[in-house]
Simulated scan of single mutants.
Amino acid sequence: MQHEAHAAHAHHHHEAAAGSSWATAVQATLHCLTGCAIGEVLGMVVGTAFGWGNTPTLVLAIVLAFFFGYALTLRGVLRAGVGLRAGVRVALAADTLSIAVMELVDNGVIVLWPGAMDAGLGDALFWGALVISLAIAFVLTTPVNKWMIGRGKGHAVVHQYHH
C-alpha cells in the first residue's frame, strides 16, 4: 500500500508540474479562500458580537479559518473514497501553507487598518476591511499556490482524487 501511494505521488508530481498554470493556482486559492472566509467572518462576527477583545477574536477567526479550510478539502477527498486518516493527511498537506499565508495576510491587513479592529458589526468599516483584507490575501496567496502545485505539493495532492 505504501509503495502504491508513493508511485501514485511520483506520477502525480510530474503531472502536477506540467499543470501548474495560473488558472489552476487561482482555482486552488479560491477553494482556500472559501474556507478561510467562512471561518474568518464567523470568528470576527462571534468575537465582535460577544464584545471580546482583539486577541481572542483574532484567535477564534484563525482557528475557524483553518477548521473550515481543512473541512472543505476533507469533504472532497472523503467523497472520493479516501479513508478518514488518509484524508486528514491530504487536507493538512494540501492546505496548511495556503491557509497560513492567507490568514497572515488577511489578519495583518485587518490589524494594521486604522479602526478596523474596533469597528462594530453595523459599521461599513468592519465589513469593508474584512472584504478588502480577504481580497489582498487572495492576490498574495495565489503565487504561493502556483509555486506549490508546480512542485507537486499543496492542492496538487488533492487533484489526484478529483479524477
Score class of each variant (00 low, 15 high):
L104F: 12
L58I: 13
V46Q: 03
E103K: 06
T48A: 13
S98F: 00
A137H: 10
R79L: 15
V82P: 01
L112G: 10
V109M: 08
V111D: 01
E40D: 15
E103C: 13
N107P: 04
G122K: 00
V144G: 06
F67W: 11
Q27I: 05
D123N: 07
L72A: 00
F68K: 07
Q2T: 13
A28T: 01
I38D: 04
H14Q: 12
V26C: 02
L130M: 15
G108P: 02
W22P: 13
A8I: 02
M1S: 15
A7G: 06
W52F: 14
A8R: 04
V105I: 14
T73K: 07
V158W: 02
T24I: 03
T48M: 05
M44T: 03
T48I: 04
R75S: 14
A49Y: 08
L78H: 12
L130Y: 13
L84Q: 03
M117V: 08
V101R: 11
L33V: 04
A119F: 08
R85W: 06
V109A: 12
G128Y: 10
A100S: 07
R85K: 14
C36R: 09
T57L: 04
Q27Y: 07
M148L: 15
A18F: 05
G19N: 15
D118Q: 13
M148K: 01
K153I: 05
H9L: 11
T29E: 01
G35L: 04
H12Q: 14
G122C: 02
L112M: 14
T48V: 06
W113K: 06
N145E: 14
N107L: 03
G81N: 12
F138P: 09
A37Y: 03
T29R: 08
R75V: 11
A5G: 12
L33E: 04
A7V: 10
T96A: 12
V59R: 06
V90A: 02
